[in-house]
Design a protein around this nucleic acid. Structure first.
Length: 358
DNA sequence: GAAGCGTGGTC
DNA sequence: TGACCAAGCTT
């Protein structure tokens, strides 16, 4: 019988963990050496870090912990407060699921997060990656989280040339073979740190990599070409008109978006639909939140979402102090920063102010 | 399996 | 400037 594969694979953890002990990034959600991380902190950070950089997440993580120190307090918070605190972070379904998850854990689990991958996987907003990551990092389970960093590291280690996302299950199995029984949580974080700091997408720093000797892609000089990814579709450009309504008492009209879909549940500057065809004035006026003397402001607001670009024209109007609307909220202009506007809406507000319609 | 879902940084 | 990329999940 030949030498078991595990003899060689275990050397990956043996090489990586000492490197991690010297080079681990110091991050606010990580436990100090020798301590167990708080599952609430691990969960909150992992959800915030979905498709989002560490630098972007840090201030939000601190703000959430300061305001809601435990999962019980987060569960008890009004949902709109959680959404407003999430504003600017993107992928707002995460905030809706975060709040729902906190309520489930608080109500059904005695404020204790499940300590297994399968138990975590049942909670809203916790998918395959996040369940595996929390199980490993918070509970030291030998699970195999596979995020974008680990996909890249594993694809290079084994020189996997099949394109993603088709190769994902192959990579997950390879990762599973690498996970050590000792310190699996540190191993997962070490793989992510390696991906972020050494095994980088464009210019891998193989000269500094503790796994270079074991890396097939590095040996062949093709590390920078992996992983192969399927081509992405081109983004169309859509058009919209946004209505900036200033009331004589200094309030601005906002509106809450439907719960599902783009910017679901978030406040918005009332606007037309976002269509590929341009809006003519008569059609746009039919979508205004109220009848008023609308003026088109110079310039446009441009923004890019995951799957389309949008060009927004802003119409402004001033209305009397006693104006009301059926569906909408009047927000004092000088408290607009508390409203929790998504970035595209903040851009519209900034544009209106810059054009003198504050 | 594919599409929908944000934002900011980088090259 | 535009395309790519980041600790993905849901339907």
């Amino acid at each position: 019988m030949s030498e078991p594969a595990s003899a060689k694979l275990s050397s990956v953890a043996d090489r990586l963990l000492p490197w991690y002990d010297r080079h681990a990034r110091r991050l606010p959600w990580r436990a100090p050496p020798g301590a167990r991380a708080d599952p609430y902190h691990v969960w909150l950070s992992e959800v915030m870090l979905q498709q989002t950089t560490v630098q972007t997440v840090q201030p939000y993580f601190h703000a959430f912990l300061a305001r809601w120190p435990s999962v019980h307090e987060l569960a008890a918070a009004p949902r709109d407060d959680v959404l407003a605190a999430w504003a600017g972070l993107g992928y707002y379904a995460r905030a809706r699921n975060l709040h729902a998850c906190a309520q489930t854990v608080s109500r059904d689990h005695g404020a204790q997060f499940p300590d297994t991958e399968a138990g975590l996987r049942k909670l809203p907003g916790i998918g395959p990656y996040t369940a595996a990551a929390i199980a490993a990092i918070a509970f030291d389970r030998p699970s195999a989280p596979l995020d974008g960093n680990i996909e890249r590291v594993v694809a290079r280690l084994f020189a996997v040339q099949d394109p993603l996302p088709g190769a994902k299950e192959t990579l997950r199995a390879r990762m599973g073979d690498l996970v050590p029984h000792d310190r699996p949580g540190d191993f997962a974080q070490a793989m992510m740190d390696l991906g972020a700091g050494i095994c980088q997408p464009r210019k891998p720093r193989c000269m500094l990599c503790p796994l270079a000797e074991a890396c097939r892609a590095s040996a062949r000089g093709i590390a920078g070409d992996l992983p192969v990814k399927a081509a992405k579709k081109a983004k169309p450009t859509r058009q919209a008109v946004a209505f900036w309504t200033v009331r004589a008492d200094g309030c601005v009209l906002l509106r809450r978006r439907p719960d599902k879909g783009l910017l679901g549940g978030m406040l918005e500057v009332p606007s037309t639909d976002w269509t590929e065809a341009a809006w003519d004035a008569a059609d746009a006026r039919g979508h205004a939140p109220l009848a008023a003397g609308w003026t088109e402001l110079p310039g446009v607001v441009r923004h890019t979402f995951t799957h389309f670009h949008v060009t927004i024209t802003v119409w402004a109007a001033q209305v009397p102090a006693d104006t009301t609307v059926a569906a909408g909220e009047w927000w004092p202009f000088d408290r607009l920063s508390d409203a929790g506007l998504p970035t595209v809406m903040r851009k519209i507000a900034d544009h209106a102010v810059k054009q003198g319609a504050g």
